[in-house]
Simulated assay, not measured.
Amino acid sequence: MTKFEKMLETWNNEALRGAKAKLSKEMNVSEVTVSRWAKGELKPGQAAIKKMAKIFKKSEEEIREIFNAEKENQNNIIDGKIELTYIPVRGLSSASGGKFILEETETFLPFKKSGPNQFAIKIVGDCMVDPDDPRNSIYDGDYVIVDPDVEARNGDVIVARLDGEYSTVKRMYRHGEEVRLVPDNPEYAPIIRTGATFIVGKVIDVYRPVRAKKERNN
C-alpha cells in the first residue's frame, strides 16, 4: 500500500474501498486521475495539492512529501533561463465519434507546460467547429492541451471519458446532478450524463500545427 493509499484509507474511516471514488467527487477530478496518483503514474499539481491539504487536514508540504513532489516552478526558469518542456500526446479524442484515449505514445509537443500533469490529445472530427465563431473553434487535426488538476466550470471545454474506454471533447454545463456535454457545432446533439467522475480534465489551450497546402494555380 502506498503512502497516498494509506492516507485515503485513514480519511475514509479506515476503508480503502470507495475512497478513490469519494476523493474524485470531493476534488472534481476523474477516478482515473486518482487511480494514477495512487499508482505513482501521475503527481498532483499545486492546485490539487492545495485541495488535498484542506480535505485531508494536512499541510501542503506533507502532501508533497507523500507524492515526493517538488514545489512547482510556475515560470519554468532554471538558472535564469527559460526551460522548454514537451507535453506528451496521449492518443486521440473525438470531436464527433468515439476514440480511445490516454494510451501512452512517443509523440510530444513543444509547448510550455504550466502544470506537471498536463498532456495533449489530437482531435478527430468537427463537432467543436462553431460556424458563428471560427476563431474560437477546435478543428480536426488540432491538439488540445488538457490539465487534469484544474477544476472545470460551466462553459469550459473538457475531455470526458464515456463508456469506460472512449472519450469526447465538449463544453460542459452542470444542471444539478445532470451534466450536459454540448458540442459547438449545432449539427451534433448534446450528450447527457449524471455525476462528474467521467471528466478527464479541462482543455486549457489549443495547439494548431501549420499544415502544408497545395500550390495555387494562377
Results as ranks from 00 to 15, higher is better:
1 M>N: 10
5 E>M: 01
6 K>G: 00
7 M>A: 05
8 L>A: 00
12 N>F: 03
31 E>R: 12
37 W>R: 15
40 G>P: 09
41 E>T: 05
42 L>P: 05
43 K>Y: 07
43 K>F: 07
44 P>L: 06
46 Q>R: 05
49 I>H: 10
51 K>V: 06
57 K>T: 12
58 K>F: 11
58 K>G: 09
64 R>H: 00
66 I>K: 10
69 A>V: 15
72 E>A: 15
78 I>M: 04
81 K>Q: 11
81 K>S: 09
83 E>F: 03
86 Y>T: 05
86 Y>A: 08
90 R>L: 15
106 E>V: 05
110 P>A: 15
111 F>Q: 08
112 K>S: 13
116 P>V: 00
116 P>A: 01
123 I>A: 01
124 V>G: 06
126 D>L: 03
131 P>R: 06
132 D>Y: 02
133 D>A: 05
134 P>L: 08
138 I>T: 12
138 I>M: 08
140 D>A: 07
144 V>N: 00
149 D>Q: 13
150 V>D: 10
151 E>W: 10
155 G>S: 00
158 I>R: 04
159 V>Y: 04
160 A>Q: 09
163 D>S: 04
169 V>H: 00
175 H>G: 11
175 H>T: 14
178 E>M: 10
178 E>C: 07
181 L>V: 10
184 D>S: 12
185 N>W: 03
189 A>C: 03
190 P>W: 09
205 D>G: 10
206 V>F: 08
208 R>W: 08
214 K>F: 04
217 N>C: 05
